[in-house]
Design a protein around this nucleic acid. Structure first.
Lengths: 222, 222
DNA sequence: GTCTATACCACGATAGAC
DNA sequence: GTCTATCGTGGTATAGAC
């Protein structure tokens, strides 16, 4: 690779940081490239040069965060599997905690959690559908194999289709819970460092119990 | 009310119908007012005259669908309560089915389900956060009172805050499941009239079991 | 009161100079 | 690599016809 004439990497990094703040605070279409580049103190056209489009800027910003998060999830599942006696399997509760709890851990800046990043993950559900679908393709599909394998072991009676349905519900509940923090009337408290992890533990318990629930047979009438 | 000189109501209705098709198919920011007004065969400025903005057009379109849906949910809960012996309460399973199953029922056009409308409900999670928050304020808050009262009766040991957390998880799983239909790799089948109701039954079972799960006490370390 | 034509400004994107 | 200028399209506002 040839030597860079100027601080190209620094410009990229400043853009990614500004994008994290902007997108998390104002949403995808609520954030303009002019606003982001002003905050990053770079030229408007720099976005197109470094990322080719607003869409790719968002995707790279998300992938940078989801990479370590998913790596930690896989690591926790493998640690649990290594600690499991032969003939036994990793429990649903362990799987769900591996899925949910790293959200608090992966985004630590020093002692406290980077809430902007954590919230960002939940907000991934509030972008144009084509965008979140592409993000899922890039950052979740490879992880899905590990996770569904653990689920199949823990739920040997369920068909692959039923596993996938439950995985949908699980992911939806998790992203929605992160995104909806403090948005409902009555529950005014915002997401903060102190209540993030207890919320995630409640969520993991909710999901684990839901996964264990028997699948109902279809009936004719509502 | 004075007599209308022209077909104001017809213009409104055509705009709402076109908006349903457009917003559901292309998402909120993926649908332009020029596209919607062309489809409705009305002038661009008609949106501003009848709804004052794109935002309000979307909100009115959603409220028109969520009204009957929530009315049916409340009706089902009250029917279940009426059929419950004194000293007993409506079960979690009944509550969850009342919450979830009307999605299939409320959107019937004649014999089959209007899938555009059903999908629209799920897509409400993929709009700018400020929009879905406003929709929740207008269409869900009044319903929340009935629903949380039933939940409190079914789960007398939980604090109001814990009830609200679980309601978050419930709503997130439901909206996400509707929105995510057919978007994951591996599960390619699209939402259709035949598989909507079985999916909703699976979802209701998932949620009911999750709601019943004991809330974990917070621990120190992940 | 209802509808139309049109102007306005902000947006994302890009070409080409430096 | 960076910047300026510019293009097409978006939501919105308004003046005026009917």
């Amino acid at each position: 690779m040839p030597a860079l004439r100027k601080s190209s990497a620094a410009t990229r990094e400043r853009l990614l940081r500004a994008a994290e703040r902007c997108f998390t605070e104002h949403g995808y279409e609520g954030s303009s490239l002019r606003q982001i580049t002003r905050m990053a103190r770079v030229n408007l056209a720099a976005v197109n040069y470094h990322f080719s489009s607003k869409r790719e800027l968002w995707l790279e910003m998300m992938q940078r965060r989801l990479g370590p998060l998913n790596a930690e999830r896989v690591r926790l599942i493998e640690v649990a599997r290594a600690a499991t006696p032969v003939g036994s399997v990793v429990s649903l509760e362990q799987i769900c905690e591996a899925m949910v709890l790293p959200v608090a851990k992966a985004f630590r800046d020093g002692k406290s959690c980077n809430l902007t990043a954590a919230r960002m993950v939940g907000r991934a559900i509030s972008v144009p559908p084509a965008l979140s679908k592409e993000l899922s393709r890039r950052s979740l599909d490879q992880y899905w194999r590990v996770f569904s394998a653990a689920l199949r072991d823990a739920l040997p009676d369920l068909s692959p289709a039923e596993i996938e349905w439950k995985f949908y519900f699980l992911m939806s509940a998790m992203l929605g819970a992160l995104a909806w923090q403090g948005r409902q009337q009555g529950l005014e408290r915002e997401l903060n460092t102190d209540n993030l992890e207890p919320m995630l533990r409640r969520l993991a318990a909710f999901i684990a119990s839901g996964l264990r629930a028997p699948m109902p047979v279809a009936k004719a009438k509502v």
